[in-house]
């Protein structure tokens, strides 16, 4: 049971209020029709599965309905930061 800080409500809330939406920072290609099958396949299906730092997209489904990002350690389940859409993580596997 995670305890998640919603960067829009600016409060910690119980995991029950949220939905996990997979890996963060996956942008839809601006011109899908120009994508090769491989490029489109990479966008559609290929996701990272790191041991350690992972950036994830979540939505505060039962709260403000806003999507936001979480940096989470997949080993310890520690949430290292949450940040709004359009922002970049301050904690990365490089940092």
């Amino acid at each position: 049971m995670f305890y998640i800080h919603c960067p829009y409500c600016d409060e910690h809330r119980e995991e029950e209020e949220f939905h996990a939406k997979g890996q963060a920072h996956i942008a839809r290609p601006l011109d899908p029709d120009a994508c090769t099958d491989e490029e489109w396949g990479n966008f559609l299906y290929f996701r990272a599965n790191p041991r350690g730092i992972h950036h994830e997209l979540w939505v505060h489904a039962a709260g403000c309905r806003k999507f936001f990002n979480i940096t989470r350690d997949t080993q310890t389940y520690a949430i290292l930061e949450t940040y709004r859409l359009g922002e970049q993580p301050s904690v990365t596997s490089q940092s």
Partner: peptide, 13 residues
Amino acid sequence: LEWLELYHQTEWP
């Protein structure tokens, strides 16, 4: 509704 919001918030704000 969540699908619509996903696209509006992440792709086409």
